[in-house]
Amino acid sequence: MKIDAMGKVIHGATLSRIEAKVDEEFYIYPIFTMQDLSRETGQYGIKEEIQEVNISKNKFQKNFLSQINMVVIGLTSYKAIVIGENHKGKLITSNFAIIEFNQNEIDSFYFTWYFNEHPKVERQLRVAMQGSIIRALSIQMLRELEIAVPPLDIQKKIGRVYHLKKRKEKLLFERNILEDTLYKQLMVNKLKEDIKCQ
């Protein structure tokens, strides 16, 4: 099934069109960044830097704000994530596509697994990008991609396993950082003790 048939696919907001001018009333919103996407898709060590933007109250549209279970795809990284609590309410910019599914038909985590991991999507992306100078996925290319859609209960099982696998990877990364810090401190303490004993 084509992505276009699964749900609503839209381009993120173009900041130059909605940023507040000097004399305009505005809302302040955090931005969902490429660093946020990278951190969620495997580069767990990237430091979090919150970026904010002043959005004109006259030009503001809520459909550009991230919501839980919304799928966001990086148009240059070709990676998808499901928005969780930690990214809820961030402004999605034009570096991304937003996909809203009917949750009774498509499981968001299944979709992200298929998009990020399945070789068929990788092949389709390679074909779509042939001859393209700019290595960015267009919204039209994205809408045309084919995704296998098994029954919802199968999707949920695959999606759950994928979600838990990514969560485990992140926790293992954090554990390794803590272990490294602990071992470093233990060795520093040991050295201090030895110097005192001399």
Rank of each mutant, 00 (worst) to 15 (best):
T93S: 04
Y162R: 03
K170L: 10
P151Q: 02
D107A: 02
Q130S: 11
E146M: 05
I10C: 07
L164W: 05
H163P: 00
H87G: 05
K59F: 13
E144H: 13
L65P: 03
F96N: 01
Q140R: 14
L164P: 02
Q67M: 10
I177T: 11
R126D: 07
S138A: 08
H118G: 01
N69V: 00
K190G: 03
V188E: 02
K165N: 07
F115A: 07
Q103M: 09
L178P: 09
S66G: 15
I68F: 09
S94C: 09
K157S: 11
L65F: 09
K184A: 08
Q130M: 10
V22Q: 03
N63A: 07
E144L: 13
K79P: 08
D107P: 06
Y29M: 11
Y27M: 10
E174M: 14
N58V: 11
A13M: 02
N189P: 09
G12Q: 00
V161Q: 08
I83R: 01
K47Y: 09
S38D: 14
F26I: 11
T76L: 08
N189H: 11
G12K: 01
A5P: 05
L65A: 04
L37Y: 10
G131M: 05
G45C: 14
A136M: 12
K21A: 03
L37C: 11
M187G: 01
E117G: 02
S94K: 05
I106P: 10
F32V: 08
E25S: 14
E19Y: 12
F101P: 00
K196M: 13
S77W: 04
F109R: 01
E193D: 12
Q155G: 08
R167N: 13
L152Q: 00
S138D: 05
T181M: 04
K192Y: 10
S66K: 07
N176V: 09
N69F: 01
I73E: 03
E169H: 06
K168Q: 15
E19S: 13
T33N: 03
F111Q: 00
Q185W: 03
R175T: 13
H11Q: 06
Y183N: 14
G7L: 01
M6T: 04
K157F: 02
K184D: 07
L145G: 10
K79C: 09
S132N: 15
Y27G: 04
R17F: 12
I134A: 14
G45M: 14
Q51C: 06
I83W: 00
L172N: 07
I134M: 15
G89A: 12
N69D: 02
M6D: 03
D4L: 12
S138C: 10
S56M: 04
N176C: 14
K190W: 02
